[in-house]
């Protein structure tokens, strides 16, 4: 091959590669409008279908996950409860996200939570470990050695031990479940980060709003998927009785954690401003609490 020819082809190939990447981005979903939040509701539909529809409407997983990414997924696996009891994230929702990540080219998907009850029982009884390990995700119990002190320029916290895998991940996806909570009133995406906190995390309840906002200063998820397929309306965050659970068949996707939690409050007949951590998060500039300033796409699937 002549040098000239080589340069020519290289240039074309280079352009092709460059354009290819650009072209790839302009998928139909991408070409559509960008939203701050997508709320997908599908009465009677499967949780994985609703989840996938919500992510697709939000631009598809390829918008967030690149080939070769190491993705950390943080569901709520805090309690020794079954999926019907709605104290943990719905296993089908987690599985759907894991699958979308792999489809988008993720190299590795890690799933874990620092459970409150015995982790073996939480992982098993929640259905999450079985649902995602069969898809090839790496399900591991929290290893105490991997909590490292992280300095935080917060209102209350100056540092806290956080889980290294979360901080080192290429991409981070938060998949909380929306439910009632005795002190925080509701627990959704911001409070789900308690599951990556080491040490005596119970102490943060003394100033819950400020502390959760402080943690969110250093933990920035790529994507948040709020599972509201089944929600606990009382006796949270554990519930226990079927009477505590309401079926909403809803999945909310977004990036702004404050915005998501503010919207999530409306599912329970509350406002974002009723929740101390949403207010603190908005005040710290972490996101938008005022729903009228958010572009929300509601779709029935």
């Amino acid at each position: 091959m002549q040098r000239r020819e080589f340069l020519k082809y290289s240039a074309i190939a280079g352009c092709g590669l460059f354009l290819g990447e650009r072209l790839d981005l302009i998928t139909p979903a991408e070409a559509a409008e960008r939203y701050d939040l997508v709320v997908a509701r599908g009465a009677g539909k499967s949780a994985s279908f609703i989840t996938k529809a919500a992510v697709d409407a939000f631009g598809g997983m390829k918008r967030f996950i690149s080939r070769g990414d190491v993705v950390v997924i943080k569901p709520n696996i805090g309690w020794d409860r079954t999926p019907e009891q709605a104290a943990n994230t719905n296993p089908e929702v987690v599985a759907a996200i894991v699958k979308l990540c792999f489809d988008a080219g993720a190299k590795k998907v890690k799933v874990f939570d620092r459970s409150v009850n015995d982790p073996r029982r939480c992982y098993k009884q929640s259905g999450i470990a079985d649902a995602v390990s069969s898809l090839g995700a790496e399900v591991s119990f929290v290893d105490d050695r991997r909590f490292k002190d992280v300095s935080i320029k917060g209102q209350v916290l100056t540092s806290w031990p956080l889980y290294t895998d979360v901080l080192e991940a290429d991409k981070l996806i938060n998949i909380p479940v929306a439910k009632h909570h005795g002190l925080a009133k509701l627990t959704m995406s911001m409070k789900n980060w308690m599951g990556i906190m080491g040490g005596q995390r119970g102490r943060i309840h003394q100033k819950i709003g400020e502390c959760l906002a402080d943690i969110c200063l250093v933990v920035k998820p790529t994507l948040t998927v709020l599972d509201s397929i089944r929600v606990l309306t009382t006796n949270g965050p554990q519930g226990g009785s079927p009477a505590d659970v309401k079926r909403l068949d809803t999945v909310i996707v977004g990036i702004d954690q404050v915005g998501i939690d503010s919207y999530g409050a409306t599912l329970f007949g509350m406002k974002g401003s009723d929740l101390s951590y949403v207010k603190a998060g908005a005040a710290a500039g972490l996101g938008v609490m005022d729903l009228s300033r958010l572009k929300i796409k509601k779709l029935n699937v």
Binding site: G182, H205, Q206, K207, I208, N235, Q238
Partner: peptide, 16 residues
């Protein structure tokens, strides 16, 4: 005079 709800949060019975 300090907020704390940990005992209630972890109580497993329903109702708590």
């Amino acid at each position: 005079s300090t907020p704390c709800i940990v005992c209630e949060e972890v109580c497993p019975t329903s109702p708590k």
